[in-house]
Write a protein that binds this DNA or RNA. Sequence first.
RNA 1: GUGGGAGUAGCUCAGCUGGUUAGAGCACUGGAUUGUGGUUCCAGGGGUCGUGGGUUCAAAUCCCAUCUUCCACCCCA
Length: 461
Amino acid sequence: MKQKPSIPKGTRDFTPGEMLKRNYIFNTIRTVFENYAYLPIETPAMEKLSTLMGKYGEEGDRLLFKILNSGDFLKKVSDEELTKRDIPFLANKISEKGLRYDLTVPFARFVVQHQNDIVFPFKRYQIQPVWRADRPQKGRYREFFQCDADVIGSKSMINEFELVQIMDEVFNRLNMPVTIKINNRKLLQGIMESMGIKEKFMEITVIIDKLDKIGETKVKEEFSALGISDEISDKLMNVFLYKDNTKSKLDMIKSLTENTQAGTKGIEETEKLWTYIDHFEFDADIELDLSLARGLDYYTGAIFEVVAQDVDIGSICGGGRYDDLTGIFGLEDLSGVGISFGADRIYDVLEKTGGFPETQMQQSEVLFLNFGAQEEIHCLPWLSALRKADINAEIYPDPVKIKKQMKYADKKKIPWVIILGKDEMKADKVKLKNMHSGEEHLIPPNDIVNKIRVTNQYEQK
RNA sequence: GUGGGAGUAGCUCAGCUGGUUAGAGCACUGGAUUGUGGUUCCAGGGGUCGUGGGUUCAAAUCCCAUCUUCCACCCCA
């Protein structure tokens, strides 16, 4: 009985064609990260649950993939406890590892653990998959890749500014029009403090984050469900819907929050960031979006989010400053700021807009046809010569029908085919066929490399 | 966790007011063309119709259950 194979939901296989496109994205991001002097690290796919739990809020804990202990995983559980079916309690007893949920918390753990070996301010980048036990849907997967850059051990707003430059540069290189939204958690804190609703900070941020998605009326409904008076609700909406230039927005917040410490600090930070931003030209649209909140608990200062202008797919990059991420691991007073690119969503956007450049998708450039044992041997030195010349080349491994071999070249979009059979061997020539034009050139084997290079140069012009 | 759709060939799907042997396109294999691809034409292989039960003379088709999957909400990249 044959079974139909499949993969877990929310996960994906990547074909060679898809990998070429994905690598194009990863390489672009990596190049820009390194250009700004961020260094690579990697951390394990699984972390101890004690590292992961409690860092992403209640919802986040629920979405952690937990790994069953090996061996007799029930040995710590009594029959009585088992029958109570207290899932969180049991999960705690039978599982002590989980798959990483993001790259930021493992990074914080990494910094604390290697604090004696690393140089502060520490700038690292990390491109690895993360896992969330979410219910998958369009643009949301259970396994997806994040590309993070963080700097830890510096409070300077230069870091924020450079991260904005990185976001701009990456999407500029990918030829993707985007809007970079910036806000500051301290401004939000100041606003809520001045209105006396500070204790509902988390709930309110989650709601206003949805503002452009569900609209003003729905947001107000959710506010009142939270027990916020209509008066305060209106005041909040006035702030979040305020449309004007950055300076005017800041003045408005300033007058509103001048009595609050958080507000004053937030204004100061944001003004500082904008003095940098105003000195430079950007391809992306950059705006101070007061309704940007971001769900993750640990952000305390500037926050960022990038959305594509051409495709409505949610945020494709986000990040922010966190003041005390390493504190829970015992290393106090280290402030960090970072961003994270969602490679899978960027892929979806480029796919929809046809944004992948044809030329980047390199593969084998030359195929030697296989005419049989003698001809095969005769081909091998020339095959090596091409590879030494840095031209990706292959030989069809079996002496099957020429038609089939040609079809192979066609399907793999290999631009050159070398026909080296009995006739060519006798004449000490090879027949080089261009699969685009159909032209065939009978040339000495020594000329293959030149012919290909010259033609490629010509075609690029 | 809540709500809605869908499971038929390797893939995308048609068939579904029950009725002989379950179809198409793509893909695959062979041939027209034994040294020439992308176009065309011909032929062929491949399915216990997700699984279990029920109704019926008769079920891919109707009913129930179950599993899987997709979409939306929550939340998020």
